[in-house]
Amino acid sequence: MNVAGVLVLTAVLAAIGMMGVLARRNVLVMMMGVELMLTAANILMVAAGVVHGLLDAQLLVFFVMMVAAAEVAVGLGLLVLLFRFRQTISTKGLTWLKG
């Protein structure tokens, strides 16, 4: 396993995820972008565990996965609410913080 490659992969994946969050107005795709960023961090964590020979890295990934799952659940709940009130899941009309 070569660390340099892992770093490049992780960076690119995280960038793609961030692009997904910033460039798309569909809330679903934005959430998927967040998941991509989390995945990138997970990959890096596992690689770090290999580098140091620690098992704890994998456990940490485990916990991150758990939190990601809970977060997706709550996020989708919010999305359902948003659709219920606005009949759209685009972030275009959400301007109540304006001014």
Binding site: L22, K92, L94, T95
Partner: peptide
Amino acid sequence: VRRLHTGQLTGYLVMWV
């Protein structure tokens, strides 16, 4: 500075990043 407060989520996220 007020013009930064677009209310658009994406804009805020960009500034945060």
